[in-house]
Design a protein around this nucleic acid. Sequence first.
DNA 1: GTCCAGGGTTCGT
DNA 2: ACGAACCATGGA
Length: 223
Amino acid sequence: MGMVTDNHQSIWKIYQKLYFTFGSQHWWPAETPLEVMLGAILTQNTAWKNVEKAISALKTKGLLNLNQLIRVSPQQLAQLIKPTGYYRIKTQRLLALIRWLHEKGGIEKIKYIPTPTLRAALLKCYGVGPETADSILLYALGRPVFVIDSYTRRILSRYGIIQGDEPYEILKEWIEKSIRLVIGDNTRQLVSVFNEFHALLVQLGKKYCRPHPQCYGCPLAAD
DNA sequence: GTCCAGGGTTCGT
DNA sequence: ACGAACCATGGA
């Protein structure tokens, strides 16, 4: 009903077309899971180019590890992440996530927490909403969850696959189910496809699916 | 100058 | 449950 199509196959067709058009996106561009987690906060409503500046500044200061981050001053942190905008509130969000991770005993410990439990725990962290939580679960921790963002809504609604205003969880589970119906329940394959698909939608969105669109040359337009 | 970027929280209704 | 205001820098 809410979805325009009862055919989950259309999601897979879009994924395939994007993958064969743009190729592998090699997400997330980070060296460690911790770096992904910090980046997930820093990129909220922010161009990735600005996040790179902040990550680079943190790296230069030797702060890209939990032992240093747990004792960094909010003032220094705010100074270093300034290029990402919202730097005061993002400082609080980073500190909340850092403290949570430290209390849990670090990345090596949370590896063993089941995905639903972990997702609920992440969502309780100040500044971590559904998209940030799912980005962390997928790109930092390799869990088979799909990330919904504004590009996903814009692109899929513009092509009539969805209405666009569905609640986050509804869209997430519908797309996860669509992919599972095609490729099955193998976790490694699901993670691989969810990883590429979200990155490809962002790539397409940046190039061809702007808020006020012209969409010239969009590879999905030929259908 | 205006609009947007790899969102989330808070506070009205 | 939904909408609007708010956060703030940098590039097009």
